[in-house]
Design a binder for these strands. Structure first.
Lengths: 238, 238
DNA sequence: CAGTGGTCTAGACCACGGG
DNA sequence: CCGTGGTCTAGACCACTGT
């Protein structure tokens, strides 16, 4: 099931979370790790590469792998994560209210994005997210109907990602996101606790499966005072 | 200078940009690429891994590597990129106005972040970015003075990153960014073309060198109607 | 079945950091 | 100088996709 380097990766993360390795510490050398994990050096290096990409360590040639402290646990929105997953990770008091669940014909733009014929059927779902009783977020999702058979309004009030990955067995692979700020529309004024003339943070995403087919178009509208986005990024030298 | 897999990575990017491989195409198999580039399979795979991470291709087991089309060129803000670099890439009509350039004592919080003694000297730089003549962005930067010797107000009106990487020979490695929305302060009302009561998009960044020392604290304040952030993200299955 | 990518190995050489 | 990480190789076996 799990590959060796993934296990090593997770083992080392646990060691860092347990405090076995603390921020500023240097991990054992790659050579030492090969002995401890009974793995070849390239396998160890794959695990370390992943730790480095995800912001856990910084590799320094000639010295070693230094454990980073980026308070990285406070809001891991970067990457592809659903509201429901965040909810669980952070233990927020959150509720979801499904306001729309219907089939409709794809707009020409959507049809093109999904690479489907015009007027194909897509599922449109709108959900309001309540945090501590306040209506903070409005999520609108569109799926090609044939990709998500059996999806119901009831499931949508929980985690759609869970249903897609665990029940349907699809694998979500990557996403493109865009963040902009727009004026609140009438719909948002109705559904969210915001005042007229307010600005809204809009996160538009395209989510793809591992065979690179587009699964989902999302527009997530956030009340600006409760919006926060955190990212860890490495610099690529061209 | 350049490693073999980096050269292959760049070669393949050029092929995709030239149209030799187009969106939806499948790249030659790893085996074929080993022959073409006279490299071992693991080396080819390193190049393909990087293409995949940066959103150029999607690898599909049993099938091949499919070229993606994510209109990825329109605004590459994700990652660590400076305003001046973006400016050049996009050919915007942009000007920079340095409004503050002074040495001052670090606040306790800054001293802690930089891991310097209290009251160490830091360089504070504030710059207004004008796009098409409008005052759109206010950037505030703080550097430990000893890390950026010879940095002047004049250099700051160009690219500080250029100075740091090319003149000082430092290597910028990674950054942590946070995006929030706040109410405009008096300072922003004075320096930017915004109205009272306006909201401002604030991007706070910590930028680190390759030995994991903190180089720079940045607060970048954007007029919301001209702000856009784009990200390509892969999903990690825990 | 053949062809694809995914993982792992053992060993080699190089480049960098610090004593 | 030695120990560190960075790169590269040749070969092996597995898992998945399509015919």
């Amino acid at each position: 099931m799990k590959s060796k380097f993934q296990s090593i990766y997770q083992h080392l993360i646990k060691d860092m979370q347990n405090g076995k390795y603390q921020a500023g510490d240097t991990l054992p050398s790659e050579h030492e790790l090969t002995e401890f994990f009974q793995a070849s050096r390239e396998t160890i290096r794959k695990a370390l590469k992943q730790l480095s990409e995800h912001g856990y360590i910084q590799k320094i040639q000639g010295k070693g792998s230094v454990v980073l402290d980026l308070q990285r646990l406070d809001f891991p929105v970067s990457g592809v994560t659903s509201f429901q997953e965040l909810n669980q990770q952070l233990g927020m008091k959150a509720e979801t209210e499904v306001v729309t669940f219907k089939e409709c014909r794809a707009t020409p733009k959507q049809a093109k994005q999904f690479q489907l014929p015009d007027d194909s059927i897509v599922l449109e779902i709108a959900r309001v997210r309540l945090i501590d009783g306040e209506r903070i977020i409005l999520d609108k999702d569109w799926f090609p109907k044939n990709l998500v058979p059996g999806l119901t309004a009831d499931i949508s009030s929980g985690s759609i990602y869970d249903y897609i990955e665990k029940t349907l067995g699809l694998t979500i692979s990557f996403a493109k996101k865009e963040i902009v700020v727009e004026l609140a529309t009438d719909e948002e004024l109705q559904l969210l606790d915001v005042d007229q003339g307010s600005q809204i943070v809009v996160v538009r995403s395209l989510t793809y499966l591992e065979d690179a087919t587009l699964l989902q178009i999302t527009e997530s509208r956030h009340r600006p005072d409760r919006f926060r986005f955190v990212e860890f990024a490495r610099r690529y030298k061209t």
